[in-house]
Every structure is written in structure tokens, then in C-alpha cells.
Amino acid sequence: MDGIHDLGGRQGFGEIDVDESDEQFHEPWEARVRGIVNAMSGAADWNLDWFRHCRELLDPADYLSRPYFDQWVQTYCAMLVNSEVATVEELASGKSVAPVSGMPAPMRAAAVKSARPGAKRYDREIDVGPAYSVNDSVRAKSHGIPGHTRLPAYVRGHAGQILRHHGAHVFPDANALGEKRFEHLYTVGFPSSELWAEAQRQNATVYLNLWESYLEPL
């Protein structure tokens, strides 16, 4: 979707706040939210791409102005309401009116030490071979995609070259609709001069990881 989240190459956001301290969380509630999200159980048909899409659908002004973990809170609230696990009134008051059934048990404290969130795999072997090989020239498709997608606007219609093939990974556009499909994934390099009229150097390249159906042969 052509939403506010698709920020690559947009202009006018000003300087970066580079003097930030090394603390991982700046407020106690932020650490708490991170912990809640790691520890909570959820509907069986939730996944990372659905979460991302629900965050992309925040009101654009909220997306740009609200603290990051506050956006997580509202995104999970929206997912809970949408899946009929909680009502807006319950989320506003923090008081449960009706119990939920059919949820998996939440994580226990004893399981946290051995939890390995980074160990989750998103790839799978598929029967279809890759359409592209390393060094092939490709073009990113030029049309936008209405729902969730990981094809950023700034590369659409531009030519690049395959740097690496990563096997088949879960396809985000379908995953965000609750549909598990796997597609070949490639790292594609786009020369900065191909992407930007004012490219600063000839020897600059932007690399993206793009699924096969985002690409066409050149």
C-alpha cells in the first residue's frame, strides 16, 4: 500500500537526532511494552506481516508523531479488536468484561531464559526453481500493491541486478492476508544513479531484498 510508512527517498524530514544515548529503552513503559509483546499469546492467525500491515494503517499523523512503542500498543489494540478478543471499551479501561476462549497459554517466566526469538525461520524448500540467477538484470515492477507489500515505492520501475539468491521465503503480501505462500527471494542492487537524479556518487548502490513476483526480466 502507498502508505506513510513507505519512507525511502521521501524528503523534508530534516536532521537526524544523532545524540541519542545508548539506553535500549528511554522510558520504563517502553521496556514493559517490549516485554508484553514478547510474552503475550495471540490469535493463531496473527503473524509478523499482519502486525506490520496493521501498524502501516495507523493514522498517518500518528505514525509520524507517536513514540515507536506507543504505535506498537495501538497496533496490538487494533488487532485485538479486529479479532474480537477485546473491545475498544475494555482496552480503554484495562478491565475485562468478557473472557476469551481458544487462546494458547501465554509464555511463563521460566521459558524466557531459553527463548530464542531470532531463531525463527521464514524460509522453506519449494518445488519451483528460481526464475533468476546471480548477475541477471531485472526491473522492479512499476505498479503499487494495494495491501501489505515489501516492494518500496522508490525502486518501482527501476533496473537492478541480482546479487544473491536466498531460497524461498514466506511471501509478505499473502502472509498479511493470512495465507502462507513461499517465493524465491533475492538481494537486488540498484545503482544510486538509477534511483535518484541527484545521486551523490557513481560508486553507490542500494540493495534490497525482493521477492520474485516483485521483479520482471530486463
Partner: peptide, 16 residues
């Protein structure tokens, strides 16, 4: 907002 979410999830048995 974070506090309300946490309280509700505890009541619903969705977080420990």
C-alpha cells in the same frame, strides 16, 4: 495506554 493494555491482557489470561 500501555498500562491499560497490560492490565487487560493479564485479566484475559493472555500474559503472565
Amino acid at each position: 495506554r500501555a498500562k491499560a493494555l497490560e492490565s487487560l491482557l493479564v485479566e484475559k489470561g493472555m500474559i503472565d
